[in-house]
Amino acid sequence: MQNENLNVVDEIAVRLNPDVLKWLREISGYSIEEVAEKLKIEVEKLELIEEGKLGPTFTLIRDLSKIYKVPVAAFFLPKPREIPMPKDYRFIPGRESKFDKETLLVFRKVRGLQKVAKELIENLGYTIEPHIERVSLKDKPEKIAEKYREEFGLTEELQAEFKDASAMFKYLRQKIEELNIFVFQYGMPVKDARGFTLTDDFPIIITVNSKDLYKPRIFTLMHEFGHVLLGESVVDIPNIAIPTTNIVERWCNEFAASFLLPKDVAIKVFGENRSSLTSKRTLGRLSGRYKVSKHMLLYTMFKLNYISLKEYEEFKKRFKPSSYRGSGGPPPEVRIMSELGDKYLKLVVQNYKNNLISYSAALETIPSVKTRTFNKLLEQVG
């Protein structure tokens, strides 16, 4: 009898704001035709529902919540909520301000985490502002890069000592998080976005694409840090090998390149290897030593007049970018630590252990975490 009553409830038309229905579809990146096909209903019927001329059933709302990856409660909001988007600096012809569904989901997720992090920081009475000085486009990126390289303690020797690019990424992530800036890693189509920054609210967040290789990921991290120093919320596809006319992107590219391979280091190394500078073996060895891509090495050679523009363009074609191939999925607690970083997770644990939030509230601060995984995180992060 109880199941029959539940079925009746599921089929009763629900009253809600039709503007919210349309808004949830749009922020999830779906066309009305795509959703109708997934629901196996006619487009005209879904149009009537979004226009408020036909009430949706609770079953339909539950199906839509799975498609849009939002909680059922979101459909009962009184009106759409603005989700501020970062400026689009990707410059993809025909796709300006249009993003893949996976990328849109990451935007929403990170905005939610930013709000949660702010509350957790305020609970503990900590400052939410970053420990940085703003810069402008008038500042020379090479000088700013030199300053932060020194502040991060990144010497040429240390750079060579890192076991691999993954180890160097973790080191730089930690140094940036020590400046009260959160660094997240989430998977998005690499051709859609490599990273983005949120500086329009506190705490400031950098998000790097976890589907990218680690050497480009390092470059993206420092490129996005450049945007943070400039005080910009942007989404982009940092790539030193692709010329850009945008002065902001150019500044951030130069900042990242100068940070990872300073001019004095480059001149010394290129001079030592002049006879075989562009050989596959030399480029591979230098790429491994400094944890930078071959494209960035070639760009720096061209910039410092070690090779001509023609040679630079020819050599670039030899090294096509590879895609990231993970060997199976890591354990859930390892994945979450990689996604959210040490700083965010310590914040959650501190709030919980100081009795500022309940166990269930702590679970809600971490997307899609299960009890067993959360308990392991408590042990490791604690």
Rank of each mutant, 00 (worst) to 15 (best):
R62E: 14
P80H: 02
I83M: 15
R62A: 09
K38I: 10
M85T: 06
E33M: 05
K79F: 13
L46H: 09
V70Q: 01
E82I: 09
P18G: 11
L64T: 09
R81M: 11
K87Y: 06
R95E: 12
E50H: 06
V72I: 14
E42M: 03
L21D: 10
A36E: 10
R62G: 09
P80F: 02
P93W: 04
F75Q: 01
S28A: 15
P56F: 10
I92N: 08
F76P: 00
I41F: 10
P93A: 07
V72R: 01
E44L: 04
K22L: 13
L39V: 03
A36M: 09
L24Q: 07
K69Y: 03
Y30I: 11
E47V: 05
S28I: 11
I49D: 10
G55E: 11
K87R: 13
R15I: 11
P80G: 07
S97C: 06
I32V: 15
E82Y: 09
K69P: 02
S28M: 08
E26P: 00
R15V: 11
K87D: 11
E44Y: 07
V72E: 08
K40I: 00
E26K: 14
T59V: 02
I27D: 00
K66N: 12
F91M: 10
I61H: 02
I49F: 04
A36L: 08
L77F: 05
P93K: 06
N17W: 05
L77V: 00
G52H: 05
Y89M: 14
K98Q: 12
S28V: 12
K40V: 01
K45M: 08
L77N: 12
K40M: 06
K22R: 15
E50T: 07
R25G: 07
F91R: 13
A73G: 04
V70R: 01
F58S: 01
V20P: 10
V43L: 12
E42Q: 13
A73H: 03
E37D: 11
R95S: 10
I61S: 02
L21W: 05
K98T: 13
E96P: 00
L77Q: 13
L46A: 06
Y68K: 07
V14M: 14
L60F: 04
T59E: 14
A36Y: 08
I83R: 11
K66D: 11
K79Y: 13
K53M: 08
S65A: 15
P84V: 00
V20G: 11
V35T: 10
L39K: 09
P71S: 15
Y30T: 11
I41R: 15
E82V: 09
P18K: 03
K87C: 00
R15C: 04
E26C: 02
K53G: 15
A36H: 10
L64A: 06
N17G: 10
P71C: 04
R25H: 08
S28P: 07
K53N: 15
N17F: 07
L48S: 13
E82F: 05
R25L: 07
P86I: 03
G29M: 09
P18Y: 05
K22N: 13
I49R: 03
V20Y: 07
L39F: 06
D19K: 12
E34K: 15
M85C: 03
